[in-house]
Measured scan of single mutants.
Amino acid sequence: MQRVNMIMAESPGLITICLLGYLLSAECTVFLDHENANKILNRPKRYNSGKLEEFVQGNLERECMEEKCSFEEAREVFENTERTTEFWKQYVDGDQCESNPCLNGGSCKDDINSYECWCPFGFEGKNCELDVTCNIKNGRCEQFCKNSADNKVVCSCTEGYRLAENQKSCEPAVPFPCGRVSVSQTSKLTRAETVFPDVDYVNSTEAETILDNITQSTQSFNDFTRVVGGEDAKPGQFPWQVVLNGKVDAFCGGSIVNEKWIVTAAHCVETGVKITVVAGEHNIEETEHTEQKRNVIRIIPHHNYNAAINKYNHDIALLELDEPLVLNSYVTPICIADKEYTNIFLKFGSGYVSGWGRVFHKGRSALVLQYLRVPLVDRATCLRSTKFTIYNNMFCAGFHEGGRDSCQGDSGGPHVTEVEGTSFLTGIISWGEECAMKGKYGIYTKVSRYVNWIKEKTKLT
């Protein structure tokens, strides 16, 4: 034993070699072989497995989906700052455009905790909710729209109204504003409101030439003092309507412009014939205590009207009353817009006519005020429907199939267009061939041609 100890002390290297040989010859039971080890760690190889990531292109799944990435790591994937920024906006807080917040056709661009709407022409605001041009839906104005110097929408209202708090709607500024039905039992019968379409306001006024200088022999019209197929109006439903009495009662109609003036057809009036105007009328054979009678003290036909040349060209006249009318729910003026808007309103496509005229061709006159909704007829169809001249200051309205029309005794009465609950004068009943005849239409004086003249002559002093 002493000898062994001496050998170990003198030859430590020998001992180490012996131990190493023993270990190498022993069977290893701690580690699995290569094949079995792979069965336990069965993990798919990654895209760049075996390579240094710093030297390969980034992978979106590896960089940002398996674990949260930084902007720089995302930049490695896209290799483009702009594309990385677009991805980053949604990656950080989701897609803010998912709810489609942009209105009126706006395009949404996502941002971090926010979004941006790219608005089409005519709109602005956070969600493109603000109209900035009158060309689109009248700028959301209830009545009139004008573009300011910086191309912003400025709404306005006709006389007797003021802008509401929203700067879009119009509200009454006087007790009985024009064009409004205020009798409670008839307010439910107000005709369907007309909503502004998209309009090209630059070209809204037709490029028409008034044929002022045409000389033409007097034409022989049949029954051209021209509501057939209409309905009984309720008291106060058309408070701007008046009836004219002269040699015979209810020979023509008219509309209240203001307390002192009536507008009617020029062919209705004769110099030297006494005319009485009755406002607030409903049943011409009954006294309903809503009527107001006034005498006409002055007749002003349009300066281009000449019955000797043509009885229905420039067929418009103004009547001055001896005493002002007292405005109330049964006696209310009709609204008159400017030339541009009167023309736009007419193009809405349908209007209402009213009167006490004959209820059928050569038949009896109506006792109760009649009204009828009539569609506008395109000019080409209008011209083809008659052998008589249709001037540019006239328009056609009615039904091709016949059966409904204005008729004798309705002449001078109103053709009105309702705009968001307020009625505007767009025409004056003038003439036609018979009444409600198939293929024939009622012919009306186009008020847009005469609004400046009306307003100039009827100013209240």
Rank of each mutant, 00 (worst) to 15 (best):
V4W: 09
A9R: 15
S11P: 09
S11T: 12
S11C: 12
P12Q: 09
L14S: 04
L14P: 09
T16M: 15
T16R: 09
T16Y: 12
L19K: 02
Y22K: 02
L23Y: 08
S25R: 06
E27W: 03
E27I: 02
F31E: 15
D33N: 07
A37N: 14
N38E: 13
K39A: 11
I40T: 15
L41T: 08
R43K: 12
P44S: 10
R46N: 06
Y47T: 14
N48S: 14
S49K: 10
S49M: 11
Q57K: 10
Q57R: 11
G58A: 14
N59S: 09
L60G: 15
E66F: 04
E66K: 06
E67R: 11
C69Q: 04
S70T: 13
E72S: 08
V77A: 11
N80P: 15
T81M: 08
T81Y: 08
E82P: 10
E82Q: 15
E86A: 15
W88M: 15
W88I: 15
W88A: 15
D93S: 13
G94M: 10
Q96W: 10
C97P: 01
C97W: 01
C97N: 00
E98Q: 11
S99A: 11
P101F: 03
C102A: 00
L103H: 11
G105E: 04
G106A: 06
C108N: 00
C108R: 01
D110E: 10
N113R: 11
E116M: 03
C117K: 00
C119K: 00
F121V: 05
F121N: 03
F123V: 04
F123Y: 10
G125H: 01
G125E: 00
C128I: 01
D131G: 10
T133I: 09
T133N: 13
T133F: 06
T133D: 09
I136M: 13
R140D: 10
C141H: 00
Q143F: 03
Q143V: 02
N147R: 12
A149V: 13
N151K: 12
N151G: 11
V154I: 12
T158M: 11
E159I: 07
E159P: 05
G160Y: 02
G160T: 09
A164V: 05
E165H: 12
N166P: 02
C170P: 01
C170S: 01
E171M: 10
V174I: 08
P175H: 08
P175G: 07
P175E: 14
C178Y: 00
C178W: 00
C178M: 01
G179T: 01
V181I: 11
V181C: 06
V183P: 11
S184C: 05
T186D: 12
L189G: 10
L189H: 13
L189I: 15
T190M: 04
T194W: 12
T194E: 13
V195G: 15
F196G: 14
F196P: 09
P197C: 05
V199Q: 11
D200K: 12
Y201G: 13
Y201K: 14
V202S: 13
N203I: 09
A207W: 12
E208I: 13
T209I: 09
L211N: 09
N213K: 05
I214C: 11
T215L: 08
T215A: 09
Q216C: 06
S217I: 11
Q219V: 08
F221S: 14
F221P: 15
N222T: 09
N222P: 07
N222G: 09
D223N: 10
V228S: 11
G229W: 14
G230R: 09
G230K: 12
P235D: 04
G236C: 03
P239M: 01
Q241K: 05
N245A: 07
G246Y: 06
K247Y: 05
V248K: 12
G253I: 12
I256D: 01
V257D: 00
A265E: 00
A265D: 01
A266P: 01
V269L: 12
G272Y: 06
K274L: 06
T276N: 09
V278A: 05
V278M: 07
A279H: 00
E281P: 08
H282T: 13
E285H: 13
E286C: 06
T287H: 06
H289R: 06
V296S: 03
I297H: 06
I299H: 06
P301A: 09
N304W: 12
K311S: 06
H314G: 04
A317K: 00
L318H: 01
L318T: 01
D322T: 03
P324H: 04
V326G: 05
L327N: 01
Y330R: 09
I336R: 01
T342I: 02
I344N: 09
L346H: 04
F348T: 15
G349E: 04
S350V: 11
G351M: 02
G351I: 01
Y352H: 10
S354Y: 07
G355D: 02
G357Y: 13
R358S: 11
H361A: 06
K362Q: 08
S365T: 12
S365D: 11
Q370V: 03
Y371A: 13
L372C: 11
V374G: 01
V374N: 02
D378W: 03
R379P: 13
A380T: 12
L383T: 15
T386M: 13
T386E: 07
T389C: 07
Y391F: 11
M394Y: 04
G398C: 02
F399G: 09
H400L: 13
E401K: 15
G402F: 14
G403V: 14
T417G: 01
T422V: 09
L425C: 00
G427C: 01
I429Y: 13
W431N: 12
G432K: 10
E433A: 13
E434W: 10
E434A: 14
C435H: 04
A436Q: 11
K438N: 07
I443L: 12
I443Q: 03
V447C: 03
S448P: 02
V451C: 07
V451K: 03
K457F: 07
T458A: 05
K459R: 06
L460N: 08
